[in-house]
């Protein structure tokens, strides 16, 4: 769902970043403030949205429940109080990282989420690595001379792959490699083999996008003045590519990192559901389907923190690596 505007990162409104020495502290403080606002906003939105969706007491009680049992639950979970009291109660507890107990399993919801989070991180990490491993060489190769016939054909293939929804890839992989050939498990996370299909699915979802951006950046960099200079100075085409064009093109994808992560997590939801992978995405879909409010709240909270943390660190990293970014922010 992410759009293709990654490279366009406009000048962020943060101004006054002069030298990374002291501005770093300010930037980080500002970021923490933003995170707080984000968390508050998302939690509030979700709280009211979810309350309109259904009565948690009824959901907990099930269809065989007696009305006494439902009332009992209402009192037990404080659902008999006015909505706004519940809201402030919720905020107060959320601030203390207490999201209450899952309606379905009765376990602390944050614990549930934190138990699933590593699985999502591990899977995503593996997919990102494979993604880089595929996309960087492929993108560099395609971008070096995009008009050549074979590369043009490969480009078209990448283009079509980009248009293939992740779940379609996942389904086909399961049907052929797990069901038909029996090479890999179709679901779950037990053992090394079970990592193969989900990782491939997620990579097939990520790699075409990065490849195309990179190819186009490399192509662009190959036309720049300094590359021409290098060429004129006698560097070979491959030297130009590896030493000059590729590093520049890679830095050019810095702005891509942030939205790529949110894109990745969106992909992870579907991938995890297809493979019954015990990650955050599966938990979220399950809890949304059953309206398990506390778990939905806790998972969205954790996702927001996680995304924010990764994005901020990537941004900081690139600030150090690429002086041009600093200039842009002015």
């Amino acid at each position: 769902m992410t759009l293709h505007s990654e490279k366009l990162s406009p000048p962020p409104a943060t101004s006054g970043v002069r030298w990374w020495g002291n501005s770093f502290v300010r930037v980080i403080l500002g970021r923490v403030g933003q995170l707080a606002v984000l968390l508050w906003g998302v939690s509030t939105l979700l709280f009211f949205l979810l309350r309109f969706a259904g009565d948690p007491a009824l959901i907990m009680a099930g269809d065989n429940a007696t009305s006494e049992f439902v009332d009992e639950i209402r009192v037990q979970y404080g659902l008999d109080r006015p909505l706004f009291v519940q809201y402030f109660f919720f905020l107060w507890h959320a601030a203390k990282l207490d999201f209450g107990y899952s309606l379905a399993s009765g376990l602390p919801s944050l614990d549930l989420v934190l138990a699933q989070l590593p699985w999502t991180i591990k899977l995503s990490g593996l997919a990102i690595m494979l993604n880089l491993l595929v996309a960087i060489p492929l993108g560099a190769w395609l971008g070096q001379a995009p008009e050549r016939r074979t590369r043009n054909a490969v480009s078209s293939l990448v283009f079509i792959l980009q248009g293939t929804p992740g779940f379609v890839t996942g389904l086909l992989l399961i049907q052929f490699f797990a069901v038909k050939l029996g090479l890999f498990p179709s679901i779950g996370s037990e053992g090394t083999l079970s990592w193969v299909l989900p990782t491939l699915t997620l990579t097939a979802f990520l790699a075409p996008r990065l490849t195309r951006v990179l190819a186009s950046n490399v192509a662009e960099a190959m036309q720049t003045d300094f590359v021409r200079t290098a060429r004129a100075a006698g560097a070979s085409e491959s030297q130009v590519l590896v030493r000059h064009a590729l590093p520049n093109a890679l830095l050019g994808t810095a702005a891509l990192a942030g939205s790529q992560l949110s894109y990745l997590l969106s992909g992870a939801i579907i991938t995890e559901t297809i493979f019954a992978w015990p990650g955050l995405g599966l938990l979220l879909i399950d809890s949304v389907r059953t309206l398990d409010f506390p778990v939905v709240q806790a998972s969205v909270f954790v996702v927001a923190c996680f995304v924010f943390f990764v994005n901020t660190s990537v941004e900081m990293l690139f600030r150090i690596l690429d002086p041009r970014l600093k200039q842009r922010t002015k």
């Binding site: 409104a13 949205l49 979810l50 997590l265 969106s266 996702v303």
Partner: peptide
């Protein structure tokens, strides 16, 4: 400008599908 761009930046960093899934549930 600051408020709006911050808002846009924040929204972009949040996975859309997660938001969509939650809203549709409601």
């Amino acid at each position: 400008r600051t408020i709006l761009t911050r808002y846009i930046d924040l929204s972009i960093s949040f996975p859309e599908l997660i938001l969509a899934v939650t809203i549709i549930a409601v």
